[in-house]
Simulated scan of single mutants.
Amino acid sequence: MKPIRMLDLIALLRGRRRPLTAAEIAERLGASRRTVYRDIAGLQAMGVPIDGAAGVGYILRPGFDLPPLNFTAEEVEAIVVALALLARTGDRGLVAAAEGVAAKIAASAPRQAAATLSASGWHGLPEAGADPALLRRAIRDERRIAFHYRNAGGDESTRAALPLALVYYIDSTVLAAFCEVRQDFRHFRLDRMSDCYLPGGGFKGRGRALRADWSARESAAPPEPARA
């Protein structure tokens, strides 16, 4: 049983007024029903008060608390504010993930931070033409991407690139990548990208070195969000 999935399962059941079936839990956690049954049995064996049975559903009895996280009060406050500010990126995937993190913090850390600290989710970022979740996945898995791009002058081109990092500026979100067309590092605004997909192929094992080269160059000359 993976510890992270265990916490996810407890957070999912916490505060529910009705039992959740194994199928519902499996869908939300991205696991199989067999895995859910095994995880619940493991948690029950550890003393977590989960009631229910296969075919009926499962519910967490009120009053169960997770052990506290090893964060100071100010560290918890910093996390709460940072999670709230993620809404300004316009990245729906990150916002959804932030809600999950916030639920775990609320379950295991001092709870007053969420009530006393907040941030406006408003932002003036232009609508992204490429899905940030796809780009983040390509960066993690070190996979090539291909897309259409329109530069500041309105010229259009087709690009293939090795995605390295997403940079969230105040007025734009930028993909840092090694462009296979230009054979150099480039920065692409997400609102000028379109038809982004994974054409196959990757750069496994090269991402860290490429990011180090890109970072060293940008330290000497900070990037302009609009250039590509």
Rank of each mutant, 00 (worst) to 15 (best):
G154M: 10
I139R: 04
L85R: 15
A97E: 14
A82W: 03
S194M: 06
A82D: 12
A73H: 13
V174L: 07
Y168C: 02
A107V: 02
L166S: 10
N151A: 08
R150D: 03
I79D: 10
D191V: 00
F71M: 11
D191W: 00
T72C: 01
A73F: 07
Y168N: 14
L85I: 03
A84F: 00
L134N: 09
E99L: 06
A102P: 03
L135R: 09
A82Y: 09
A138N: 06
L85W: 02
T116Y: 07
A138G: 04
R111T: 14
C179W: 08
A96V: 01
S157H: 05
Y149M: 06
F178T: 05
A103D: 14
S157A: 14
I79P: 01
A165W: 10
G121I: 11
T89G: 02
C196L: 15
V81S: 11
R144T: 08
A82M: 11
A130D: 09
L83R: 05
V167D: 11
L85D: 13
L86V: 09
A152R: 14
R137S: 10
R111G: 11
R143V: 07
E142G: 00
R140S: 13
S194D: 09
R159F: 02
L164N: 11
L164R: 09
P126C: 05
V181D: 05
V80Q: 09
E142N: 02
L83G: 07
G154E: 12
F188A: 08
E75A: 14
L85E: 15
C179I: 01
I145L: 15
V80C: 06
R144V: 03
G121S: 15
A152I: 15
I79Y: 10
K104M: 13
S194A: 15
A114I: 00
C179A: 11
A138W: 05
R144H: 12
A97I: 01
L135S: 05
Y169F: 15
E180M: 13
L175G: 02
T89I: 00
A78N: 04
A161D: 04
G121C: 10
R150G: 07
D171A: 13
Y169M: 05
L83P: 05
A176L: 13
I145R: 01
L85T: 08
L166F: 09
R150F: 01
A107T: 04
E77M: 07
A138F: 04
A109C: 14
L166D: 08
A165C: 12
D131P: 00
A82S: 15
A73Q: 11
V101L: 14
E156T: 12
D91Y: 03
E99F: 00
A119G: 09
K104Q: 14
A128W: 02
A73R: 15
V167K: 06
A119S: 14
V76N: 11
E127P: 03
A113Q: 14
D131E: 15
A102Y: 03
S172K: 09
E74Y: 06
D155C: 01
V80F: 02
A176P: 07
N70T: 13
A87I: 02
R136C: 02
D195P: 00
V76L: 08
S172E: 08
Y149H: 08
T89F: 00
A102R: 15
A119M: 08
E77T: 01
L85S: 07
M193G: 04
L86D: 01
V81A: 15
A82I: 03
